[in-house]
């Protein structure tokens, strides 16, 4: 079986500063992996490197999706190949209507696949259906993208995009940050609905509490730009009890 995502000895820098210092990770189809780590460990850098953000330079190693290297691919090409990043801080786009944004994203896939563009009325119906599951109302859908959304609304909107784009590899960057208990539950339920044998997820988080809701198959501890320890979901509980300090020492 080809791994859905294979990260091989990945080194990456921001500016001239090395942040990721040799990460190797294999994610098979349908698996949910969690990456936990203290602030500054390189968690967000890893999510941006996977999505292909400018300024995050890969200095060594490789990232393969379905056996194909993604390093030369632009962010939009990666996305259309099945990569999705749920942002820690979703970006406000004043003047960009929510519906036209969602439609442009879905259409980009259709166009690449040589299919017809989505029919406007059918699309509105589809979006409304998926939005309802996430507690997103019509008024929010009509607003400009993320403008005036609360922290929780922004995160739900990220998951709505994921539901519409149906990625094969979803990276959730600190999706729990800024969420209260109720919002955390709604977002997690939305994510769990999308668990699928053909879809893998990489859940990046500082805290264990998210992993009570989105239960991972594997947990990796990232510190100082390297994976220090990997294990089952129990590893997250260990971190919860003893903190990251002990893990660092163990490495």
């Amino acid at each position: 079986m080809t791994a859905l995502l294979e990260i091989r000895d990945l080194h990456a820098s921001v500016g001239d500063k090395p942040i990721l210092k040799g990460i190797s990770l294999t994610i098979n189809p349908g698996e949910v992996h969690a990456i936990m780590g203290p602030n500054g460990s390189g968690k967000s850098t890893m999510s941006y490197v996977l999505a292909g953000r400018d300024g995050y330079e890969v200095t060594g190693g490789d990232i393969l999706m379905n056996g194909v290297s993604m390093l030369e691919m632009e962010p939009d090409e990666r996305a259309r190949a099945g990569m999705f990043l749920a942002f820690q801080y979703p970006v406000e786009l004043p003047g960009v209507g929510g519906m036209s944004f969602l439609r442009a994203a879905v259409n980009a896939r259709h166009i690449e696949a040589g299919e017809d563009e989505v029919d406007q009325l059918g699309f509105v119906k589809l979006v409304r259906g998926k939005a309802r599951d996430l507690g997103i109302d019509d008024a929010m859908l009509k607003r400009a993208v993320n403008v005036g959304f609360s922290g929780g609304e922004k995160k739900r909107y990220e998951i709505l995009q994921m539901a519409l784009l149906e990625p094969t590899m979803a990276v959730l960057d600190e999706t729990d940050s800024g969420l209260d208990v109720d919002a955390l539950r709604i977002v997690s339920e939305g994510v769990n609905l999308l668990r699928d044998p053909g879809r893998s997820m990489l859940v990046i988080t500082h805290y264990q509490r998210l992993l009570d809701h989105i239960v991972p198959d594997y947990v990796h501890i990232l510190a100082g730009g390297k994976i220090r320890k990997s294990g089952s979901k129990e590893l997250a509980l260990e971190v919860e009890e003893s903190g990251y300090a002990g893990i660092d020492d163990a490495a």
């Binding site: 962010p75 939009d76 944004f101 994203a105 896939r109």
Partner: peptide
Amino acid sequence: FYLTSRGIP
């Protein structure tokens, strides 16, 4: 980046 990360060229 946000727009392109959604697959929009």
